[in-house]
Design a protein around this nucleic acid. Structure first.
Length: 314
RNA sequence: GGCGCCAUAGCCAAGUGGUAAGGCAUGGGACUGCAAAUCCUUGACCCCCGGUUCAAAUCCGGGUGGCGCCU
């Protein structure tokens, strides 16, 4: 089976956008973003959203598809992104999935479905409260009674996952363990050629991140955040939990200085990059391109096309 | 030059005689409807030399380094 879709991933600030556009130009493709924060409108600077100049006329999908106050989710992403991909394929073009949100990429490619229909906010709230009341050990104990396998994998402090596991069971009568087994059994939705970018030396990536954050402030990150808040976007919503935004909110409110916020953003971005790498590294199918010191787009492009050729894409 | 204070992991920092809390960072890992989120995990023999003691990061002396004050 020939891969029908290309994936370009890597940690933040590794040069995914540029490579994605270059490959699209070369292969007649369109970009489908796989970034959990660039989906929000009016959040441009802090998410390092590609500018029109960077896009170079290549269509970009799954960017600016939601308002910051909306509750977006993987499930919604999979649904919407899949229809973008289908549309691109139907027009005889090549979908190029570009982004750093590993969960979104894997979920889309696998065709994963999520258990239990729409989330029931009341139930989730109830479970969260119960967790606070009886503690992690207590709630994990309750999960153990219905789904011992899942309970064994979760740490008592992992509130989110304990709550979700219980939620799935209550909503569907099926354990999340069983649901996972069922979805794992279905064949992947797309056969993808996966590329990821990284640096030979971690510090080089971190240096890039630092510079990018400085640039965000020069470009007016603070104003962007001020206007989001002024337009009524609550500081508590998911979108505002994004790195860069929650810290800038602190500076806007006077809780810390702008310099302190910048330092915090750099640090959080480094940690995020590390988590992204952890996620990507466990996928043996990924072809890595590691930059020496400075990102060399031509090098990456050559490596990529060579790799794609071996898979029959050119 | 004199007096005083301090010297514990990359940083902050507890510990005043029995063999090194904690926080942050860093590295590693997890991850099936909030994922840029959430969670797990990770290190030092205590500035140097000598002394006291069964036993010193902890007491004494000296050295070095830093900070403050004075002349």
């Amino acid at each position: 089976m020939t891969p029908k879709i290309i994936v370009i991933s890597g940690p933040t600030a590794s040069g995914k956008t540029a490579l994605g556009v270059a490959l699209c130009q070369k292969l007649g493709g369109e970009v489908v973003s796989a970034d959990s924060m660039q989906i929000y409108r009016r959040m441009d600077i802090g998410t390092a959203k590609p500018t029109p100049e960077e896009m170079q006329g290549i269509p970009h999908h799954m960017i600016d598809v939601a308002d910051p106050e909306e509750n977006y989710s993987v499930a919604r992403y999979v649904e919407e992104a899949a229809s973008c991909v289908e549309d691109i394929l139907n027009r005889g073009k090549l979908p190029v999935l570009v982004g750093g949100t590993g969960l979104y990429i894997d979920s889309l490619l696998s065709g994963r479905t999520f258990a239990g229909g729409p989330v029931d906010p009341a139930l989730r709230e109830e479970l969260n409260e119960r967790y606070d009341e009886i503690g992690g050990r207590g709630l994990l104990g309750e999960l153990r009674k219905v789904d011992p396998e899942r309970a064994a994998k979760l740490h008592e402090a992992d509130k989110k996952r304990i709550v979700r596991a219980l939620e799935v069971y209550i909503l569907t009568g099926k354990t999340i363990t069983q649901h996972d087994l069922e979805t794992q059994a279905i064949p992947p939705r797309y056969d993808a050629a996966k590329l990821a970018l990284d640096f030979e030396v971690r510090q080089d990536l971190y240096d890039r991140i630092d510079r990018r954050v400085d640039r965000m402030f020069e470009q007016g990150l603070m104003d962007e955040v001020r206007s989001l808040l002024a337009s009524g976007v609550p500081a508590s919503c998911t979108a505002m939990q994004a790195i860069g935004y929650k810290e800038a909110v602190g500076a806007v409110s006077g809780a810390c200085s702008e310099t302190e916020a910048a330092e915090k953003i750099k640090m959080e971005s480094r940690r995020y990059a590390k988590r992204q790498l952890t996620w990507l590294r466990r996928d043996p199918a990924i072809e890595w391109h590691r930059f020496e010191k400075t990102p060399d787009l031509n090098e990456a492009l050559r490596h990529s096309t060579e790799f794609l050729r071996t898979l029959g894409i050119e």
